[in-house]
């Protein structure tokens, strides 16, 4: 069976969940080989997880140097492994970096590239949700080694233990790959609330919240529910809340169990970032607001009355 390369996403010594999903998707197309690009000595630590989800081989591309340059080294490494392994396909996570790695790789291999894939079948047909999710497209690669860039949740991760043989992959960087040097990494923490894109519940505020100070009302309902806080672009542009919390086309895409929209009208670009949420609740004083078209439970009313009452009720129920 042909190999299917999966680029491993990892952080702080752990394999990210998306990688287990990619390995699961890869098993439909061939025999998964995980590719770990990391500091010397990291790949072995990931072996248990990678094996559990079906990696027959684990390529360890370990190099401190590769990590000091932006994007290009990872596509160099994948291209070199693809050169010897002749894989049936290559799977990469649809993060900002993943999309760039895939773009460079497509150029190197002259291969077709499908990005933002939300579903992948055994026949190699990929599903994409385009135009802010309004249109569902099925497409396939017709030339070269198919490169699929998958979004989180495209497939459900399922364990299927495999050998996970560790193979050392030599790392040699082209001159062109060492032109953008990473000098520093700065983390701007999101505080004590859950990470927006991982959270089970997201409570977002829009322009209707009215001021930065008033966002306390949004935060209070979020905290009662143990939720992350999000914001519409209008709220961000008005300076009510920091940009890193923006939900939508030009912000983050979230798909929580529950999304609560407070004072958000529901513009197409906002929906693009939240319409796949399992349950959507909206509070808006305008009965005609488009957000109600997708709300499972809509309240026509003043958010400053409804949200605090809801927060209090949640706290009462939780005891």
């Amino acid at each position: 069976m042909a190999e299917v390369l999966v680029l491993v996403e990892h952080v702080d010594g752990a394999v990210k969940k998306i990688t287990t999903e990619l390995l699961t998707a890869a098993r439909q197309l061939g025999e998964p080989s995980a590719v770990v690009v990391g500091a010397p000595g990291t790949a072995a630590g990931y072996a248990d997880t990678l094996k559990e989800f079906g990696a027959a081989k684990i390529y360890a591309a370990e190099s401190d140097e590769a990590l000091t340059y932006l994007v290009a080294p990872k596509s160099d490494i994948l291209a070199s492994i693809a050169g010897s392994a002749s894989p049936a396909a290559i799977l990469i996570a649809a993060t900002a970096e993943g999309k760039e790695i895939a773009g460079r790789l497509a150029v190197k291999l002259e291969s077709g590239l499908l990005y933002d894939v939300v579903g992948l079948g055994a026949d190699g047909v990929a599903t994409q949700a385009i135009f802010a999710g309004q249109v569902i497209v099925k497409s396939q690669v017709t030339s070269g080694t198919p490169i699929y860039v998958l979004k989180g949740g495209a497939v459900d991760a399922e364990a299927a233990p495999a050998a996970g043989e560790l193979v050392e992959a030599s790392v040699s960087l082209s001159e062109a790959a060492t032109k953008a040097k990473i000098l520093d990494r700065v983390v701007e923490s999101s505080g004590s609330r859950p990470e927006l894109t991982d959270a089970n519940i997201v409570v977002s505020g829009g322009r209707g919240v009215g001021s930065a100070d008033n966002f306390k009302v949004v935060e209070d309902l979020a905290d009662s529910l143990g939720a992350a806080v999000g914001a519409s672009r209008a709220a961000v542009d008005s300076g009510f809340y920091p940009h890193q919390f923006q939900v939508g086309q030009t912000g983050k895409t979230v798909s929580p169990q529950l999304y609560v929209a407070l004072g958000i009208s529901g513009a197409i670009q906002h929906r693009a970032g939240m319409q796949t949420s399992k349950t959507i609740v909206a509070v808006n004083k305008d009965p005609e607001a488009p957000i109600f078209e997708l709300a499972d439970f809509g309240v026509v009313g003043d958010l400053f009355a409804v949200a605090p009452q809801a927060a209090e009720e949640v706290r009462k129920r939780k005891g």
């Binding site: 959507i280 609740v281 509070v283 009965p287 109600f292 997708l294 709300a295 499972d296 439970f297 809509g298 309240v299 026509v300 009313g301 003043d302 009355a305 409804v306 949200a307 605090p308 009452q309 809801a310 927060a311 209090e312 009720e313 949640v314 129920r317």
Partner: peptide, 16 residues
């Protein structure tokens, strides 16, 4: 289509 209510003073509780 979901459920839509108009606040009559108790919508926060109904929401929960």
């Amino acid at each position: 289509a979901g459920e839509k209510i108009t606040d009559e003073g108790d919508a926060g509780s109904k929401l929960v």
